[in-house]
Design a protein around this nucleic acid. Sequence first.
DNA 1: CGGTATCCCCCGCGATACTG
DNA 2: CAGTATCGCGGGGGATACCG
Lengths: 236, 236
Amino acid sequence: MRSGFGQFCPVAVACEVFAERWTPLILREMFAGSMHFNDIRRGVPLISSALLAQRLRSLEARGVIVRESAAQGRSSSYRLTDAGREFKPVIEGLGAWGQRWTVRVSRDTLDPGFLMWNMHRRIDLARLPNGRTVLRFDYSGVPARCRGPRQFWLLLDRHGCGICVEDPGLEVDLCIDADLATMTSVWLGDTPLADALRSRKVRLLGPRTLVREFPAWLMLSRFAHIQRPASHAPGP
Amino acid sequence: MRSGFGQFCPVAVACEVFAERWTPLILREMFAGSMHFNDIRRGVPLISSALLAQRLRSLEARGVIVRESAAQGRSSSYRLTDAGREFKPVIEGLGAWGQRWTVRVSRDTLDPGFLMWNMHRRIDLARLPNGRTVLRFDYSGVPARCRGPRQFWLLLDRHGCGICVEDPGLEVDLCIDADLATMTSVWLGDTPLADALRSRKVRLLGPRTLVREFPAWLMLSRFAHIQRPASHAPGP
DNA sequence: CGGTATCCCCCGCGATACTG
DNA sequence: CAGTATCGCGGGGGATACCG
């Protein structure tokens, strides 16, 4: 199969750059802030290493990203160019469509590691208490398919949010005990967190102050606020 | 390769529907007004019949289009659903990106039939003279690869525009003699029609009135008016 | 960490022919 | 016109191992 479409139409040419398998997800990940190879992989865990490298090379060749080798290390980083940044409306349009017209939570898409990787970038740091706050998430209802851990620590302070997959040995301030499907649904905006707490599918264990404040820290998915069409609303 | 991406992210789920090979072009064609199988094929000439049928079935199954079988004929038609129509901003975003950041006219993308198929939908019918106007386009500089004809008739009146590939036997009111690459560049907004006329790479043969009015009838590509970034402007 | 190198399978897709 | 049926291939990409 010839790779291109053989058309001068701007949509066709853009598709040759943008619409290859995995590429929109790689760009989504870079818009979310990832700049390093393995950070991108955490956001697109099912892509193989070889293929990610190939896609990044292709995007670089087409002027969508630039690769910058760190001065004296093996660490290199990738940034969107001006051209790459202009794919943002396309990614946002796709996300809005997916939010409005699809069911996303299913056995095949649940993944606690992926959920946490997304969540850790959507903590409203400005609302945190002073000093460090340590959260632990314990997930139940994780599909057997999922390889990784089902327990995660978030280390929060005003300057950032670190994610740990092994016990960092710090005192945990607040523990979130959650059914994975429910928490994913909350993240996507399909279930209000208050409902999930009321039904006890998500439980917050810790000091009252933190329990009360937690919902305000946790910003949801960038698309969570987009409303479904009335004709397609989820049942109660 | 598993077809999906295994992610609950709305972007990923939307990509499973939208970002398959050929699918964005099929939708572009439907947004441009095509509703029948072979009309869509004229806008996506390199897709095979079998694959187009498969893609249409897939889009129908995902609720993006509906297929309506005509009451008593073999003719069926396809329409975008509400969900399908909401891909419009995505297509437009891709087209805008392609317009701003790519070179589209090359030996591999030139195609007089495809150009005419697009052009015939972008004639400003309201500006036409009364009655019927017959145009004939004669293309030179057509790559050997192109199979079809290099001469086309447009039959214009206030109610529509018909495209013919064989001599309809009507008197031609205006003949457009054009280098294909130049006309394509004009269509895409990269070359002003006035420049192409001045350099005589496009020539209009007919009564003065029609010659003067023609540029006003010919609307260009929907993306032609989108400006390139200053850093990426085409040379003079 | 940040990738390459290889192998090899499988299926997406193009080509062609055919049908109501 | 509007597709279906069938076949065969090419290369995309998954798996695995390896390297600086």
